[in-house]
């Protein structure tokens, strides 16, 4: 998967983006089981209808998990020092997500070379779902 080479990274460069299949109920059910987050908001349509929502919504942490793959597709996990996200809007069933990362800073800290990446997840209508950043050591 390491097609993009961080060793020659330059500011403004995008990492290979990750395009996902539409978010399904199965994705949410599996994530609820695997993460232990059993909040009915993500899995129980009767509950969400009762509280006035038309349908279940995705776990923010599931989307953060997807976005993390852009990092681990291009770096060893041990290189990743920090990973921050803000959940900007709700991800719905059927959303087709694209996860992206862009190099915004290259700097030396403690004799180690670091990259700062700007991260985002958008759906098919270009609505921002998540934005974030990550700090990665490269040397």
């Amino acid at each position: 998967m390491n097609i993009w080479n961080y060793k020659s990274a330059s500011i403004g460069e995008f990492l290979p983006e990750l395009k996902l299949e539409p978010v399904s109920r199965t994705n949410l059910a599996l994530y609820a089981g695997a993460s232990g987050d059993h909040n009915p908001l993500h899995i129980d349509t009767d509950y969400v209808n009762e509280i006035g929502l038309p349908d279940v919504i995705a776990h923010g942490m599931l989307i953060m998990g997807y976005l993390g793959r852009v990092l681990t597709n291009n770096f060893s996990q041990g290189q990743i020092l920090e990973y921050h996200v803000q959940f900007s809007s709700i991800t719905n069933i059927g959303d087709k997500l694209t996860c992206s990362a862009k190099v915004v800073k290259i700097f030396t800290n403690d004799k180690k070379k670091n990259l700062e990446l700007e991260l985002s997840v958008k759906n098919q209508d270009d609505d921002l779902k998540l934005k974030g950043h990550s700090l990665v050591k490269i040397l």
Partner: peptide
């Protein structure tokens, strides 16, 4: 897992995750 909601008298249906950060030291 929702003890803090009880401590804070918050109804679970009103709560959303706004942001999440990790700093990693070891795998």
């Amino acid at each position: 897992p929702y003890q803090y909601l009880h401590d804070l008298s918050i109804d679970m249906k009103n709560i959303l995750h706004a942001s999440q950060s990790y700093k990693y030291h070891h795998l």
